[in-house]
Amino acid sequence: MKILAAMSGGVDSAVAAARAVEAGHEVVGVHLALSRMPGTLRTGSRGCCTIEDSMDAQRAANIIGIPYYVWDFSDRFRAEVVDDFIAEYSAGRTPNPCMRCNEKIKFAALLDKAIALGFDAVCTGHYATLVTDEAGHPELHRASAWAKDQSYVLGVLTAEQLARCYFPLGETPSKGLVRAEAERRGLGVAHKPDSHDICFIPDGDTRGWLAEKVGEKVGNILDNEGAVLGQHRGAHSYTVGQRKGLSLGRPAPDGRPRFVLEVRPTSNTVVVGPREALAIGTIAGGRWSWAGQPLAHPERDFECEVQIRAHADPVPARARIARIDPEAEVYREGATEEFVVEPDEPLHGVAPGQTAVLYVGTRVLGQFTIDRTVSAVSVEAQA
């Protein structure tokens, strides 16, 4: 096959490209420039897509012996990922920019361009596994290394995209083995730290970055009965489940810590309360997709597992596709159906804007962006 290897400048993508060559494919390396003004250097594990990363990727491509190019996707990245991140926070939601980047950039814009140029597939260093079912349809499954599994962030991929993907690291038992292989191959990135945090906020100060983008506006912090407990400098700086940084000045009557329960951007207020108030009995979202073939009758309850963060444990649940209440105000225009998931045990710290990925066994079934939640307390009261 003719394969385009997406090379981030890290060890995983470099080894993935090398394995693709070793498997006999015709491979071309490409690094995505996602910022017009990237930092020239990384700080440990902070940041990615910097000039240093581009140079690391080029050195790896030279050692592997493949052509290498840099493609400027900065305009689309800003529109599809950065601007979306700002808009979601401004609307009181907690977005996952890595999901949007995979959906809109790495497996949409990049794949579309690769196909237009005659490539058969895009190769990345993600830890996930592709399986073909009896009918020849692609399925996305967890990697063999559970601790490194990245199938969650790939849950946005469609059947058409999966058919054009290549994940050479999916069966590798550990990241240590990948680093050891990189060292044997003479790749200088063998011991380069993994990237963490949001790539376009390399210093990790999300609150400060958002304040620069959308400004600060003083508002009230309320308890779950509506009493004013203090003030904040911008509701966009808070997310559901947050405990630190509330600066209330006085403890709760029972002395226990408070957590953010709700962010209300319209009134610029933040609601806080006890941890048990974070327990969620139902989640639902209208922006959803199948990762591969859809279920034959998704309107019927089916058993699955739901995962709401990249490194969270999956929770057994029941799910279905249902019609959206036309009076509901939380949905984006045009949405007519929603995924509704009821976990067997309450979820905690769930915020609108997060991505829920559904699994059946090791297979990724699909995903949706959480638009609304129902308290587990409310569900118990109705039972």
Rank of each mutant, 00 (worst) to 15 (best):
M1L: 12
A5D: 01
S8M: 13
G10Q: 10
A14F: 06
A16H: 04
A17L: 04
R19C: 00
A20T: 09
E26M: 02
H31W: 01
H31Y: 13
L32I: 14
L32D: 07
A33D: 01
M37L: 05
G39L: 11
T40R: 12
T43A: 13
G44W: 02
C48H: 14
E52C: 10
D56T: 04
D56A: 12
A57P: 11
Q58P: 00
Q58D: 03
R59D: 10
N62F: 01
I64R: 05
I64M: 06
Y68V: 01
Y69K: 04
D75G: 00
A79L: 10
D84T: 13
F85M: 02
F85G: 06
I86W: 01
A87C: 09
G92C: 12
T94N: 15
P95R: 09
N96D: 15
M99Y: 13
R100G: 00
F107T: 03
A108C: 01
K113P: 00
I115W: 05
D120T: 08
A121F: 00
T129K: 15
L130G: 09
A135W: 09
H137Q: 13
E139M: 13
L140Y: 08
H141S: 01
R142G: 12
A143D: 10
A143I: 07
W146Q: 15
A147S: 14
K148V: 11
G155E: 12
T158I: 03
T158V: 05
Q161C: 02
L162R: 07
C165K: 09
Y166A: 01
F167V: 05
E171V: 08
E171P: 00
P173H: 14
R179T: 01
A180D: 15
E181N: 06
A182V: 11
R185V: 01
R185I: 02
G186I: 06
A190I: 07
H191G: 00
S195K: 07
S195H: 03
H196K: 09
I198K: 04
D203C: 05
D205E: 03
G208W: 04
A211N: 05
A211I: 13
V214T: 14
D223L: 02
N224R: 12
G226L: 11
A227C: 07
A227E: 12
L229F: 04
H232K: 03
R233P: 00
S237C: 10
G241T: 09
Q242A: 03
G249M: 06
D254A: 06
L261E: 07
V263M: 05
T266I: 14
S267I: 10
S267K: 13
I280Y: 00
G281C: 09
S289N: 13
L295K: 14
A296Y: 06
R300E: 07
E303V: 10
V306R: 05
R309F: 04
H311A: 13
A312Y: 14
V315Q: 08
P316G: 10
P316T: 05
A317F: 10
A317G: 08
A319T: 12
I324M: 08
D325R: 10
D325K: 10
A328D: 15
Y331T: 12
P343D: 04
L347H: 08
G349P: 14
G349C: 11
P352R: 07
T369E: 12
D371T: 01
T373L: 06
S375Q: 06
A376K: 05
V377D: 13
